[in-house]
Simulated scan of single mutants.
Amino acid sequence: MTEQDFIPELYSKSLESGSISWESPSNIALVKYWGKKENQMPQNPSISFTLDNCKTITTLDFVKKKNEEDGFSFDVYLDGEKKEDFKPKIETFFKRIEVYVPFLKDYHFVIETSNTFPHSSGIASSASGMSALAMCLMSIEKQLNSKMDGDYLNKKASFLARLGSGSACRSIEGDLIVWGYHNDIEGSSDLFGVKYPYEVHENFKNYQDTILLVDKGEKQVSSTVGHNLMHHHPFASQRFAQANENLTKLIQIFKSGDVYAFIEIVESEALTLHAMMMTSLPYFILMKPNTLEIINKIWEFRQDTGLPVSFTLDAGANVHVLYPEKDAKPILEFIKNELVAYCQNGHYICDKIGFGAKQL
């Protein structure tokens, strides 16, 4: 598919007003995307677990505008509080998608949103937020064009979400989503996320993700700034090649169920992501001392018990502790007894693999 496939023809129906609600989850990348080209295209492919409990709930109310005023008209609320500081990001998003969603200027929108996790804390709130908003917009388009099928709706929602936040395109569906063209993955595309199309061993079904909130404050560096630092990064080309290789290796790993080979790739990917930030100009260290304490404790516990517990990180200090469901009991005991002490105010979130956005 190309971008042209997402430009609609004339709509067969019209709508005066309405209200639509969707919830959409965050996701955690196993092979990381870091660095993007123009139009929110990824420099390398990525693959992620869709989460279940960490999600954004968005209600979109819309009323047809009475006058012919040009421009977008909308208000944004987070947890019932009007958020003027969210408006520029949504305005940018609307400008990027207007050609694909031509009804945007016909309505006044009220966007009411809430997260089940702390905003801007290194859990991808932009991924869940933009994907939920994209699904609301696609629900309106489906009402204007009743012939649209579900597969096209999901692809276009992923395509739109990507234009708001790159990783948001991986939140529309689940449980394993690939974004970015890869030679060995049929149907993969830079334009939208696709469900991982090959065999996945039982070991990786219903994988658990306990998120340790080491630092719940605002992110030290925005994702946009971080991605842009890859343009002149001395190790960028090697990194993009490495991500492609790791995704190739995961195909066999997912098939065989080899959790230890999985751990090696996932942890290496997390540390590489942070290494890229440490070696860019300007440079950043986004881990905190407690992040390192947790990582060392996980390594020690894994060595002592042989249990397949591992970690991954996003562009922040929080630690995602990943493990198979069958080993959840002893690993959760370990997390509560040994790791929670390193979390801010002892806060952590128990999550697991989920299956994408749901209409409410």
Rank of each mutant, 00 (worst) to 15 (best):
Y11D: 10
K13S: 14
G18H: 04
I20V: 10
E23K: 14
N27L: 01
I28T: 05
A29L: 05
Y33E: 10
G35V: 03
K37A: 11
Q40F: 14
Q40V: 09
M41I: 11
T56A: 01
I57M: 08
T58E: 02
T58W: 00
K65T: 06
E68Q: 13
E69F: 08
E69W: 07
F74Q: 05
D75L: 03
D75S: 13
D75M: 03
Y77E: 14
D79T: 14
G80V: 08
G80H: 10
K82S: 11
K83A: 10
D85Q: 07
F86H: 12
F86V: 06
K87G: 03
E91S: 10
T92Y: 15
F93Y: 14
Y100P: 00
Y100I: 03
K105C: 10
V110T: 14
S120T: 05
S121Y: 13
S121H: 08
A124N: 10
A127T: 01
A127S: 03
A132R: 09
M135D: 04
C136T: 02
M138C: 01
S139D: 09
E141H: 08
K142L: 06
K142I: 02
S146A: 13
D149L: 02
D149G: 01
D151V: 13
Y152E: 12
K155I: 00
K156L: 02
L163P: 10
G166S: 07
I172H: 00
E173R: 08
G174M: 03
W179Q: 04
G180N: 00
Y181H: 12
H182K: 12
E186D: 14
S189C: 04
L191V: 01
G193D: 04
K195T: 02
Y198R: 00
Y198M: 05
H201G: 13
E202I: 15
N203V: 14
N206S: 10
D209S: 10
D209L: 11
I211Q: 15
I211S: 14
G217N: 14
Q220D: 05
V221Y: 14
T224C: 08
H227E: 13
H227F: 02
N228S: 15
M230F: 06
H231A: 08
P234Q: 05
F235C: 05
A236V: 06
F240A: 01
N244Q: 09
E245T: 09
L247Q: 02
L247H: 01
K255D: 02
D258N: 12
F262S: 00
E264M: 07
E269W: 05
A270G: 13
L271K: 07
L273S: 04
H274N: 01
M278V: 11
M278Q: 15
P289T: 00
N290V: 08
E293Y: 15
E293N: 15
I295V: 13
K297F: 11
K297A: 09
I298C: 04
I298A: 08
E300K: 12
Q303V: 01
T305P: 00
T305Q: 02
G306L: 07
G306A: 08
L307K: 13
S310A: 15
F311T: 12
T312I: 09
G316M: 04
G316S: 03
G316F: 09
A317K: 07
V319L: 08
H320V: 00
H320Q: 04
L322G: 05
P324A: 11
D327R: 08
K329L: 10
K329V: 07
P330H: 09
K336R: 12
K336F: 07
Q344I: 04
N345L: 11
G346Y: 03
C350N: 08
G354E: 05
F355W: 03
F355N: 09
A357N: 09
